[in-house]
Design a protein around this nucleic acid. Structure first.
Lengths: 358, 358
DNA sequence: CGCGCTTCTGAAATCGTTTTCAGGATTATT
DNA sequence: AATAATCCTGAAAACGATTTCAGAAGCGCG
């Protein structure tokens, strides 16, 4: 087994070119070649250029294992997302990846399937592989994960939320405030009979915060949301449909349905149409995330837009700084945007609340 | 900079536990510890158990960089997908990941944004990092990538297609045959006026094969598809909408629209509704992929279902075998399934073709 | 009871870099 | 022109595991 070797066009294999090959050809020591690569500043320009030429000529690429072993840096950061489905995190991850590769880092992506146990596993696997930093989604992660982070000291950042537990820094939006604003918008339209569809899982604090926002805004307006008016679901379209059916069966008078996710909202809209209900004339439905589909669906969905790309970039910058030992912010709060489309309108009945000033 | 160290609860850092620590505690040599980990069979059971106990007690995890350096194996495989958006590849990737982790491998995911240049870049980055195997999507990859594969000898497999160029093995379905069957199904329903919406990019041979299938089936039935009857698009919903509008403006008599992607089809359906056209009574629309959304949309979409999870698992098995030097199949052809839902029906006019036997 | 064979274990070399340490060359200072 | 200071460069020692090679212990057999 000739481990490190590459096959030439004829199929025979020749040994991989290593740093001392370059050194020999260029008539310098391996140390100098290494310096050219890692600290170009400290080597005499002419010599540096000469070595550089040999490097490219021989198409030398440093062995990352050896490099990682000696330097303790893997030049790799990992992201653990709850799901790859529906492309919810795609935009962030792509931005993250772009920013990282600009700085010579590579991104590992793993997914936890909304399961804290798997998240912990993936985390351990990444750490064992000597990852330099980790980006997580959401702020609730189980005690074990937090102690793992503390013990190993790996830089970690949590995304999509504005604050996370256990001293882990975060970059994202204020989820509760966003749904509060959404709810107030609906109240302003005159709605009084609300329902909520939320995907509540222990690992999903984003939805929890969003639900809190709804409830707070409602109770401030003197409206109480009965437990049977909030339906729990997972993150699938099918569950959104089922949830809407149940909600409107139990509470036929409902005029506004707030979902904590676009996926749920789109499912709900489909079901509403199937039930013969016009959206938004009979029911208003809102989502959260502003995925691509949200604008394309019929009617276009009123939702909360999240600065996904900015979150990705921000997470990258944070980690790069943290790894370099530069000072980093505790957490970053980004603005969201309420985008009003056509899935919301004033309620049909005239028993509206008078418009109230915000 | 105390490179390999972990901070204890108080914040001080202590050195990482290494193989010789375990060896010392267990009163054996490092070599034995290594053997317990890598070739458990050749060490005396009692001793093995004893060493094992110390390993877990000290919670020792081998340094992957050192291990990779010495053994030449990274225990990591990479997947390069065109996009993370819309979750098209999510199911495959998740299956791939699950299967790999069963075998002690970790999965790197990268995305190329449907761009051959980026795909090549990512590939190089993976290879530099000493990846053990690579999963690609689709069969068209540019000459440079193919020579890179040949030169380095890294095991590579291509997915979602049944055959790839340049001797790269493949696992997937026969895309052309699938759309041919779809087209024949539509012909059987009596349609004669067709349109096609395809996302054609040089890097997307799947859509090309699918389009070929449509054209072949049609020409066998004596129907010619004018260039203006096939609309090019990228992979977004918005493009699907635009394409449908253009198609029906240029060819108002069209009764069947075949899309090479569910995304495009769903966009097309949305637009059709907006134009006041009933699907399927006025136009039949079909997709390809059978994403989750396809069944949930209104009307549910007639499409081709792909065995995504099986593709992922198969790719994992292939790579694991190839890395171990075991014999591997040239390529694997998996079955697709035509799933008929409610977005298709016989054309409105009576000028149908007589039903023909397949 | 002693010899040869098998089975395990340990010492030491090695994988390809990075980096410390010290020394040689070059320039600045008086 | 001599000495000090500054810059670069090379030799060699790690980094933490794996694996070869050879030797020690255990076994069966005559």
């Amino acid at each position: 087994m000739d481990k490190k070797s590459i096959a030439d066009p004829k199929g025979r294999s020749r040994p991989r070119v290593k740093i001392e090959d370059v050194a020999r050809e260029a008539n310098v020591s391996p140390a100098t070649v290494s310096r050219v690569l890692n600290h170009p500043g400290i080597v005499r320009p002419e010599l540096r250029d000469k070595v550089m030429r040999f490097i490219t000529d021989l198409s030398y690429t440093p062995d990352s294992a050896a490099r990682a072993l000696k330097s303790g840096r893997m030049r790799t950061i990992g992201a653990i997302v709850p799901t790859l489905g529906l492309g919810i995190f795609a935009e962030s991850v792509e931005a993250l990846q772009n920013r990282l590769s600009e700085s010579g880092y590579t991104l590992f992506i793993a997914n936890s399937q909304y399961d804290q146990r798997r998240e912990l596993q993936e985390m351990q696997s990444l750490i064992e592989r000597g990852i330099d930093g980790i980006v997580l989604v959401g702020g609730s992660h189980g005690r074990e994960l937090r102690t793992l982070v503390e013990q190993t000291g790996v830089p970690v950042i949590t995304t999509y939320v504005s604050k996370a537990g256990g001293g882990i820094p975060a970059i994202g939006i204020d989820n509760e405030r966003a749904t509060r604003e959404m709810t107030e918008f609906l109240l302003g339209l005159g709605h009084v009979r609300f329902g909520a569809i939320a995907n509540i899982l222990p690992s999903n604090d984003r939805s929890r915060a969003r639900l809190d926002g709804i409830q707070r805004a409602l109770s401030e307006a003197g409206i109480r949301l009965e437990p049977s008016q909030v339906i729990r679901a997972d993150h699938s379209l099918a569950q959104g449909r089922k949830a809407l059916r149940q909600l409107l069966t139990d509470h036929p008078g409902t005029t506004a349905v707030i979902c904590t996710t676009d996926t749920l909202a789109i499912g709900a809209m489909t079901e509403a149409r199937k039930m013969g209900l016009n959206v938004p004339r009979a029911v208003s439905i809102t989502g959260f995330d502003d995925v691509e589909l949200a604008a394309q669906v019929d009617p276009p969905l009123t939702t909360i837009s999240i600065p996904a790309a900015e979150i990705g970039r921000g997470a990258a910058d944070y980690l790069i700084s943290a790894i370099a030992g530069r000072p980093v912010p505790k957490s970053v709060l980004l603005p969201y945007r309420l985008v009003v489309r056509s899935s919301t309108a004033s309620p049909p009945k005239a028993d509206r609340l008078p418009k109230r000033p915000r």
